[in-house]
Amino acid sequence: MTTLLEVNNLKKHFPIKGGGIIPRKVGAVKAVDGVSFKVRKGETLGLVGESGCGKSTTGRSILNLINPSEGEVLYKGQDISKLKGEKLRKLRQDIQIIFQDPYASLNPRMTVEQIIEEPMKAFNIPKKERAEKVEYFLNKVGLSSYHKHRYPHQFSGGQRQRIGIARALTVNPELIICDEPVSALDVSIQAQVVNLMEDLQKEFDLTYIFIAHDLSVVHHISDRVAVMYLGEIVEVGEVDELYSNPKHPYTQALLSAIPEANPHKKKERIMLEGDLPSPSNPPEGCKFHTRCPFAEEQCRVKHPDLKSVAAGDHQAACHLVKEVVEEPV
C-alpha cells in the first residue's frame, strides 16, 4: 500500500502571553510536541487519547486549520504545512474534515442544500452539477432529497452528523479527518453513523484519520491505531496487535480502564494515580513517568523515542520495553 500522508515531527506550541501593555510570551502550551506517523491509502488510522492529549490539534494542523509551529506534513510527497492562499485552498479539495459537534458545525441560517453545496461553490463546480450532487450525497448518507430545504435545527444529532458527512464528500476528497464524529451521539445512533462511514469508505475508496477517545469505537473502525499522551505518540501499531499486546504502560492502563458490557468479567485494572500534567509544563524525561506505576530513574531524565517493540510495525516509546529489530525480509 502506498503512503498517502506522512507527518514528521509535527509540533504546535500555543504561546502564553503575560499581562501588561505589551504582552510578552511567558511560556507555551505544548499541545502537539513532535508527532510523526504515516497514513496509507485506503486505511483508517485511529488517533486515541484522553482530553488534552493533542489529538484534535494534530488533526487540524494537518489541514492547516491551525498553523503548525514546526515539522512537515507530506501529502503524496509534497509538504503541505507551509502552503498558503490558492494552493492551500486547492489542497482542501483532497482533504476534508468532519467535526465533533453536529450542533456547532452547521450554520443555523443555511438550508441543508446551501450547507452541502458550499464546498462545491468554493471549487467552482457548475450549478447544475451541484444540485445533482446534493441529492446524490443526501441519499448516500441515508437522508432524502426533500430534506434539502430544511434547516439544521429540524434534524436530530445523528442526522446532522450525516449532513456534515455529505458536505465533506461532495468534493471527492481522498482523505477525511474525522474529529470525534460520533462522540456526541447516543449509542444506537452512533452505531448507525459508524456503519455509514464504513460503507462510504468502501464505496468511495476513502482514507480516514479517525480521532476519538472511545477506545471500543476506535478498535471497531481502525486498521492501525496511534495512542497519544501529552502531545506525543506513545504507541502505534496494527489494531489487533496493539489491543491484544499493548506494550506501553499508558496504553495498558487505558485499555484496562474501559468498562466492558459483561458483568461476569471482573477485569484486573491498572489504576493510574493523579491527573494529566499541564501541557504548558510537561514533566522532564518520559512525560508519563509521573503517573506510571513502573517508572525508574532513567524515565525521569531521559526522553524515550518510538522504537519497534514487536513484529508488524508495532512501536512504543518506553525505556522499559525491549527493542525488537525485525529481520529484513
Partner: peptide, 23 residues
C-alpha cells in the same frame, strides 16, 4: 439493539447492528 450497537473489542470484527430510525 442497545447491546448490538456497542462495538466489542474482539479479534473478528462483526458489523454493528444499530437500531433503525430515531427515538
Amino acid at each position: 439493539g442497545l447491546i448490538g450497537s456497542i462495538p466489542k473489542i474482539v479479534k473478528e470484527k462483526v458489523r454493528l447492528e444499530p437500531i433503525q430510525g430515531l427515538p
